[in-house]
Structure formats: structure tokens, C-alpha cells
């Protein structure tokens, strides 16, 4: 019998109370006994409203904040130890980085912080600039980058040292649909390469598109957790899509349903999304020009 692989992330009974000034003994319970385990190569989404404790949980994992109780590990190492950071890359929410550095200089900066050699940084930076499609803006200062470009260079710096875990805080917040789609495609590519991704977002549709497992957090508590498919399946309903069905076929289907005593919930045209519509037009526009 094979052993289950070491979890990429182990957050065990973590709580965090932020003390309130001038109120001894009282504090703000931001995270309440949360336990999350992620398997290697998994994309895990932590969703919840603003102020629910998503970012705090992430920062505890990254060692930026110390938990009041509990602990966390990254690939078996205490996540508060500096050496565990070799395994993780982080993209915070709304990052600006150093505006005076260009794209390539930013990657060099972070590469050197990770102890990488010159040649290694050079090769890796080229690879990542291709991946995030920023070769054209490599020498432009980050002060001149758009939001989407900042997010992509942010992803690149998070990946510079080939971490096995990527932590993303609101990776598509404030980014236009085209940029957002690029970021999501990148995340899916990373998943294909068995990189564990831990992201949090309040954009539920986007989480639905890319996550394998999802945790729902409300007021610091993990209220639900599980595989996406299981979570969003409406257990007692079945969906069948038909193409070019004539009214006669539909009548036969209705009759069959009634004969079996099953409830027909609804019949109608499936809807596309505004986003898909937008992207179709954007692609057509690019093709024409």
C-alpha cells in the first residue's frame, strides 16, 4: 500500500486574534480554528466576502503574521521558517512593486533574493516573460504597466525560483476580462505542471472555472470545504443539453418525464456569459486588425 503524499499545505487549527488598542483582554477574532490541507498539484480556492479572514489566513501561512493558536506547514516545513520560503511564491493583492524597476530588473531583483545565480536568473526570466507574455514590455518601468501587466509580472516574480506552491491573493481583482482570462489560463497551465496553487478571491465565477477544491470562509470560520464538483452539484437535479431539438422531440421528452413521475424543473435556451461575448468580440477585433 503506497503512502499518501506529504501535503503541500497544512494549516492546523489556526486561530488569530488581533488585540484591540486600549481594550485589554478583548480582541478581534479574524480567524477561528481553521484547518486546511492541500495536496500537491491541487488548485485550492478560498472564497468569502471582504473581511472574512482570507488574507489573514494566507499571511499566516506565509509567515507574515503569527497565529494566536495552531500552526502551518509548507511541504512539511514550518511555514514561519525562512527556509520554507524556497518552496513558495506569493502574489499579494494589488501589488505595485518598485516602480523604478523595469520588468526584467524586477525579476532579477527577486531572483537574487532567492539566491539564484546570474545565468540561472537570466534564463528563468526569459522563460517567465514568455510565459506571462510580457517580452514586449520587459524594459519598460513598472510605473508604466497596466493593472493586468502588474499582475502578470507579479506572477512571474512569484515563480522566479521554481516554487512548488503558489499563493495568490485576489489574482484577477481589478483586471479587465482579457487580462483576467490570461491569468486564469496561466493558473491552469501551472496546475498542469503539478504546481500547487492556493488562491483566494471573491470573484466566484472565476474560482469556479479553475479550482479543484474550494473552502468557503465566513467571519473567520471555514463553513464548507470540498471538491468543486461536489460542492456545486445540485444533487437532486440532472442537466441534459440538446442541439437542434424539434418541438416534437421536446414533447416526447416531456411525456417520458411525466410518465416516470420525475419533476420537470425548467426548459429553455442555455445562456452564454457576458464575458464570453466580450472575449469573442475581442478575438474577432484582433483578427481583423
Amino acid at each position: 500500500m503506497s503512502e499518501s503524499p506529504q501535503p503541500a499545505v497544512s494549516i492546523d487549527h489556526v486561530s488569530k486574534v488581533f488585540p484591540l488598542p486600549f481594550k485589554k483582554g478583548k480582541g478581534l477574532l479574524a480567524v477561528d480554528d481553521i484547518s486546511i490541507h492541500m495536496a500537491p498539484g491541487e488548485v485550492y480556492g478560498l472564497i468569502g466576502p471582504n473581511g472574512s479572514g482570507k488574507s489573514t489566513t494566507m499571511k499566516i501561512l506565509l509567515g507574515l503574521i503569527a497565529p494566536t493558536e495552531g500552526g502551518s506547514q509548507i511541504f512539511g516545513k514550518d511555514s514561519h521558517r525562512v527556509d520554507s520560503k524556497h518552496e513558495v511564491g506569493f502574489l499579494p493583492e494589488n501589488p505595485y512593486f518598485y516602480k523604478h524597476l523595469s520588468g526584467i530588473e524586477t525579476l532579477r531583483f527577486y531572483g537574487r533574493l532567492c539566491g539564484m545565480g546570474k545565468a540561472e536568473i537570466r534564463d528563468r526570466a526569459e522563460e517567465l516573460l514568455d510565459l506571462v507574455e510580457l517580452q514586449g514590455a520587459r524594459d519598460r518601468r513598472l510605473g508604466g504597466y497596466s493593472k493586468g501587466m502588474l499582475q502578470r509580472i507579479g506572477l512571474a516574480q512569484a515563480l522566479i525560483h521554481r516554487p512548488r506552491l503558489l499563493v495568490l491573493d485576489e489574482p484577477t481583482a481589478g483586471v479587465d476580462p482579457v487580462g483576467s482570462r490570461k491569468i486564469r489560463d496561466l493558473i491552469l497551465k501551472l496546475r498542469d505542471e503539478k504546481i500547487t496553487v492556493f488562491l483566494c478571491s471573491h470573484l466566484l465565477e472565476q474560482v469556479q472555472e479553475i479550482c479543484d477544491r474550494v473552502g468557503i470562509i465566513f467571519r473567520g470560520q471555514l463553513v464548507r470545504e470540498g471538491f468543486l464538483e461536489e460542492l456545486i452539484s445540485v444533487e437532486d437535479q440532472t442537466e441534459i443539453l440538446l442541439r437542434d431539438a424539434t418541438p416534437e422531440v421536446l414533447d416526447k421528452v416531456r411525456a417520458l418525464i411525466a410518465a416516470e413521475g420525475t419533476d420537470l424543473v425548467s426548459v429553455g435556451k442555455p445562456k452564454t456569459t457576458l464575458e464570453r461575448l466580450f472575449l469573442e468580440h475581442a478575438a474577432a477585433d484582433r483578427k481583423n486588425n
Binding site: P5, G41, F109, G115, E127, L131, R162, L190
Partner: peptide
Amino acid sequence: ATTSDTSGDALPARAGHKAFSLGRIWT
């Protein structure tokens, strides 16, 4: 373009972590 050649289980060979690095400080 690929980002990594590692799988979730196979550990890449990494240089040991230095507790004190003049290179990081200089950067």
C-alpha cells in the same frame, strides 16, 4: 513555455538555505 519540471513529489536539488547572505543584503 513551461514553468517547472518538477512534479508534486519529486524534490528538485536546491542549494542549501543560507541563514545570512551578503548577496541578499546587497540586492
